[in-house]
Design a protein around this nucleic acid. Structure first.
Lengths: 186, 186
DNA sequence: AAACTTGTGGAACACTTGTTCAAGTAGTTC
DNA sequence: GAACTACTTGAACAAGTGTTCCACAAGTTT
């Protein structure tokens, strides 16, 4: 075991995390070698050492965020109750607003890089796989509506809260609970 | 009538249109005074003359796009048939893919500029106003789903076509045509 | 035609950018 | 301890950035 590589890997991860913080604060356009290095507390050249280019750094960040997003989204979907789902959505556009905004900026980045599409879309594929919906069309609508509600929540004058979202989520799943998850083992 | 102002206004508009083309091609991050000037065929200093800053130029572009988006979206919604709606959506993520991508990038820009939120959100407000839905919750779901379908269509490996979207749209509006527009006069 | 307003556009400024380079340190292997 | 590898980091470079400045042309008004 090489202790140097271990520390290197840790630093690499720290740089990616710093990049995400920069995106949360200033958007994708705020990401430069220098801003990331400053945020991570490393010298300017560190990001270039670990990532071939700025683009590679953004890609690495998207891939990492996509994993986390996957977990979060599946958590949201897995909750049976519309109130819990509404609560998760409300948190995404309020307390976690910056994070959600960053995620969608990276999301759109995938629209311009074909090689990133798979990663950005992964939570959708995984959701279908995990839930195994009886009615695929209804489920597809449900997933689209989540994205729409989040993105519209981000540009609302005042972001919607749990109580406002609950009836909407309820409408989405109630009556048609043909895609509630099949007792997801944990 | 001042002929100079008229030509100036025309040039101003040309610069905004060039900006949109640059965003379609290279994204918001590709927008610089020089790239826009080159695209518009004007000297480098022209954008600065007409817009106080690069930011102002982006804002003007968003405001202009928002108007067009408004028309497009209302057109989509106003069509009664699910096939026609599906067809419009399919066009947005295929032939007009670049344009749609640009619109969503500007959309997210509004997430970071409170003063732009109203413009970005305008088509939503207008839709509610025009359609006057009997069931506001169902309509809200419909609008969210449109955004979700479009954005997910942008990061799909191959963008969905009319035939794939039709059943989804149909599910969204059929059975619940309580928000079909009240004979929109034309 | 004189005074004005409005638009034009090249030169230049200070600054930030991504990236390279080379000299150095520290950990690992033999 | 010598050879090797992995990481560190400040200095530097060329390229591109937003923006300012200013002399000037072209319309409009009086």
């Amino acid at each position: 075991m090489d202790g140097r590589k271990a520390r290197g890997e840790k630093k690499r991860r720290a740089i990616v995390e710093a990049t995400l913080r920069v995106i949360e604060r200033d958007g994708v356009s705020g990401v430069t070698h220098r801003s990331v290095a400053r945020e991570a507390g490393v010298p300017t050249t560190a990001p270039t050492y670990y990532f071939a280019s700025l683009d590679d750094l953004l890609i690495a960040t998207l891939l990492w965020v996509a994993e986390e997003l996957c977990d979060d989204m599946l958590d949201i979907i897995a909750r049976g109750s519309s109130r819990e789902i509404a609560s998760s959505l409300a948190r995404a556009v309020n307390e976690n607003r910056a994070r959600t905004l960053a995620e969608y900026e990276l999301y759109l980045l995938a629209g311009r890089r074909p090689e990133l599409k798979a990663a950005a879309r992964r939570w959708l594929d995984l959701a279908v796989e995990v839930v195994r919906p009886a009615d695929p069309v209804a489920f597809r609508v449900f997933l689209a509506a989540i994205d729409g509600l989040l993105i519209q929540g981000l540009i609302a004058d005042v972001a919607p809260n749990e109580d406002e979202l609950e009836p909407i989520v309820s409408f989405l799943i109630c009556g048609r609970d043909d895609f509630t998850p099949p007792a997801r083992e944990q």
